[in-house]
């Protein structure tokens, strides 16, 4: 083989190896399945072989069931303790039903982690405001855990969480613990509640109290309409759009920008996102059926 042919062959081997690493899954065993709500569980996974999955808060994986299929699911675990890979999965479709039904000992497949993270560290020295709606708390839990792991580096840390009903509140025990902390402000609100509910009822935006706009990094995740509404409120309060980060969701098949499904105009949500600066996606979110 000539020198250039050898080079070309080495280049090809490298390309193929990188490609296969992203597109061929690894088997992970379910260590534990914890029921969060009627339709949502948190799975703790460990690799069948090989090392644990290092990830950044806000990233996702393509989580699959052999013979059924895969879907993009945010990692909901602790980025400072990647040995336990956690996903909080809502049973809303064929594949997610199969995943949510997995029991301890079952084997799932994992590709990733993929996508951009929250960039929590960018908020160091300032205030961090987390606004979550519904299942949107799952991808924000790693951000909060990272903040708490390095709590002294930040000024105020606030979690505002809107859920549908008191029964739909995720991580309920952990939330109770967070509410008891003196270095963390936690407010939650539900859309529907019986009179026995002592908490707040209303939209999550109503929870936004006074902010120091220039010093605030806002991390927002929830249904797109909720994120638009929260962003409008934060902009109204003077938080620069560049300091508001949103986690977008679109259909995904490959997770690495090759299949085309997740395109939001020029953006590949899987690759350029899922976490975007608000000023990058606000205009795109305004276009119907984009």
């Amino acid at each position: 083989m000539s020198e250039s042919a050898q080079e070309a062959s080495a280049d090809l081997d490298a390309l193929v190896a990188t490609g296969l690493a992203g597109l061929v899954p690894r088997p992970f065993r379910v260590d534990r399945s914890r029921r969060e709500t009627a339709d949502t569980v948190t799975l703790t996974l460990a690799p069948v072989t090989g090392g644990s999955l290092e990830f950044a808060a806000g990233q996702f994986t393509m989580l699959g069931v052999p013979g059924v299929g895969e879907v993009p699911i945010s990692i909901s675990g602790d980025p400072t303790w990647p040995d336990a890979l956690q996903h909080t999965v809502r049973d809303v479709g064929g594949v997610s039903h199969a995943i949510a039904s997995a029991r301890a000992g079952d084997v799932l497949t994992v590709r990733g982690p993929f996508g951009t993270g929250w960039g929590v560290g960018d908020g160091e020295g300032g205030d961090v405001l987390i606004v979550a709606g519904g299942i949107g708390l799952a991808p924000l839990r790693p951000a909060l855990l990272e903040l708490l792991a390095h709590r002294h580096r930040y000024r105020t840390v606030t979690l505002l969480y809107g859920a549908r009903t008191p029964q739909d509140i995720l991580f309920a025990e952990e939330l109770a613990g967070w509410r008891g902390r003196f270095d963390l402000e936690v407010e939650l609100s539900v859309d529907y509640a019986p009179p026995s509910w002592r908490g707040r009822v209303g939209l999550v935006t109503a929870l936004i109290a006074s902010v120091a706009p220039e010093q605030t990094l806002a991390l927002v995740c929830g249904p797109e309409v909720m994120m638009r509404f929260v962003t409008t409120e934060l902009l109204h309060r003077g938080v620069p759009a560049g300091q508001i980060r949103l986690s977008m969701e679109r259909a995904m098949s490959c997770g690495v920008g090759l299949c085309g499904h997740c395109q939001l105009r020029e953006l590949f949500v899987c690759l350029d996102g899922p976490v975007f600066r608000a000023d990058r996606v606000l205009g795109l979110m305004a276009v119907e059926e984009l």
Binding site: L15, A17, T18, G19, L23, V256, G257, L258, L271
Partner: peptide
């Protein structure tokens, strides 16, 4: 398909 963070390995081959 090739000049991407994760290239398509089958196309590459």
């Amino acid at each position: 398909l090739l000049a991407r963070p994760v290239p398509d390995p089958w196309y590459a081959q």
